[in-house]
Design a protein around this nucleic acid. Structure first.
Lengths: 171, 171
DNA sequence: ATCAGCATGTAAGGCGTTACATGATTCA
DNA sequence: TGAATCATGTAACGCCTTACATGCTGAT
């Protein structure tokens, strides 16, 4: 469905799809070549996408896919389906939960590492946000909303880091 | 490692481990019987845990596991390892990202559904928090911190929901 | 020349879920 | 008596990641 969604915006090659997923989407969804290329083949067989082999000026093999009517229908059905899987797998929290099994300093380090990662990601998201605000129309609105989600939650994470470090340092 | 962590607190049966994971931990980690029982067998073979078959008063087969010295060492090493996997898979955000492919009302519904789920979960977390505050000592501190994480981020989610719904309704 | 990036794909293997299979007990 | 909960486990299957395999182009 990620692929179908991306192809609803523009025609893309498998390689380009990977690059898109590694961008803003990577904050809430991941994908590898090993899953992208087989998916493209499967969806072509299903008739959801169409393959267009580009006659290249350079010598590169480049297969650009486009979404079909049937693909748009499948995408739309998925969007309307209220059943969603929202899954968090935070090893940081797991380690913290069991922090009592080690020295307090270990947990403090765990939080500090997490804080650094979040700070870095937050900087990236803020750049996305600044660029999006310049061209904020209805088309970019949905992209903008997901970026805002990241910023809001990462700010909350940072605030939690501060509180937690204070708490742990005072016991 | 979840299992090892839980066993570092108290001796448990596979069934009880599942119940623990389905509690506060479920907000950031999941586990099923199909993964718990094989893991218990594997870790027993590794010497990380010990099986104690209870002679039951009732007629129930009950295998209670306890952590060994080697298990505590493995747990400690994992806690100290700064490499973590923090993975978010939010289908809600994915659908929203591609919201342009459907009617605006579809995205509004997606956010409203998400908001309801978050509100429900937040209520549960607040109950955990209230109970923990009554007995807040060093032992429960780590549990408390993970609950605070949930509350802080869920509150941020809710604030984002409000903002997003306003934005979408005004275009 | 060499390395990073462009570009497509396959194969092995890990990990975990869902569903199934079984049987006891407790409570309405 | 029937349903929910306690309790342990296996098997099939799906999904995805990692690693491998190949070869081109463009920049330094």
């Amino acid at each position: 469905m990620v692929i179908l969604g991306l192809l609803s915006h523009e025609d893309l090659t498998g390689y380009e799809i990977k690059k898109r997923i590694d961008g803003a989407i990577s904050f809430f969804w991941k994908g590898s070549f090993g899953s992208i290329y087989p998916s493209l083949q499967a969806m072509e067989k299903d008739g959801h996408i169409r393959r267009n082999v580009e006659e290249s000026t350079d010598n590169r093999e480049r297969i650009r896919y486009s979404i079909t009517k049937s693909g748009r229908k499948a995408l739309n059905e998925w969007l309307k389906d209220s059943k969603v899987i929202n899954d968090l797998k935070y090893e940081t929290l797991l380690k913290l939960f069991f922090g009592g099994a080690a020295d307090k300093l270990v947990s403090i380090k765990t939080i500090e590492n997490f804080k650094e990662d979040v700070q870095k990601d937050l900087e990236v998201l803020k750049i996305y946000e600044a660029n999006l605000k310049k061209v904020l129309n209805e088309e970019h609105m949905y992209y903008y909303l997901t970026v805002c989600f990241g910023i809001k939650s990462y700010k909350a994470y940072l605030s939690w880091c501060e509180d937690s470090l204070k708490l742990l340092n005072n016991i």
